[in-house]
């Protein structure tokens, strides 16, 4: 409501409504993998929220944007994630990884539940060609990017999250810590995800 003037995910978080859920829909909840949300301290705001927000907001938006393709929707996801974080007792040293994992999960959930604003993403993506590398521009069409994102949401969740975190710039050590796997497993997991997505691209390319 207007008390939360920006509406969207912020209001949703306060009212505990995931955005875009109105209407007669069956629920869909992704089971957690490695996100440990602490229930303690509920109702309170952790004192380091401001500092962590300013340090990691851009990164968290980037993680969600890689999944969703649009920055504004990614910012909505980031709001939800930081709201949860603010109420959590996640250790400060694990905050960054927790936030990134939560952003990836939330964004993937949005895609899987079909609540993503597809037309908006495509409109936005159409404007993005300039930021894509020359190589990419020649090999990845807009449609392919959209398809890869859908395929991403169908991957085993750990693969998808590891992939997104790695491509968002987290180091192998950071990804490993966030997902509680070994750095070598990060390489294996990311590689599997990339292979699967490439197969997806090739499958469609050959059927065109």
């Amino acid at each position: 409501m207007d008390l939360i003037p920006h509406g969207g995910a912020t209001a949703a978080a306060v009212l505990a409504i995931p955005r875009g859920v109105a209407g007669a829909e069956k629920g869909r909840v992704e089971r957690k993998e490695h996100v440990a949300v602490s229930g303690s301290g509920r109702g309170a705001v952790r004192v380091d929220l401001d500092a962590v927000f300013r340090r990691d907001y851009q990164l968290v938006v980037g993680v969600a944007a890689r999944v969703l393709g649009t920055r504004d929707q990614a910012e909505d996801v980031a709001q939800d994630v930081f709201l949860s974080f603010g109420r959590s007792s996640v250790p400060a040293g694990e905050a960054r990884g927790w936030l990134c994992v939560a952003a990836a999960h939330t964004a993937l959930n949005l895609i899987r539940s079909g609540r993503r604003r597809i037309s908006r993403e495509e409109a936005s993506a159409a404007d993005d060609d300039a930021v894509v590398s020359d190589v990419a521009e020649t090999v990845v069409t807009l449609e392919e990017r959209s398809r890869v994102r859908s395929a991403l949401a169908e991957l085993p969740r750990k693969q998808a999250v590891a992939l997104v975190l790695r491509h968002s710039g987290l180091s192998y050590s950071e990804v490993a810590a966030a997902l509680d796997i070994s750095p070598t497993s990060v390489g294996t997991t990311v590689r599997r995800a990339e292979s699967a997505l490439r197969r997806e691209l090739i499958r469609h390319a050959s059927s065109d």
């Binding site: 851009q58 980037g62 920055r71 930021v131 894509v132 491509h167």
Partner: peptide, 19 residues
């Protein structure tokens, strides 16, 4: 593959987000 996927996941820049 990594380049291809990175391109597929490319998005508008988040450098300009208003923190």
């Amino acid at each position: 593959d990594a380049i291809l996927v990175d391109a597929a996941l490319a998005t508008e820049s988040v450098a300009g987000v208003d923190v």
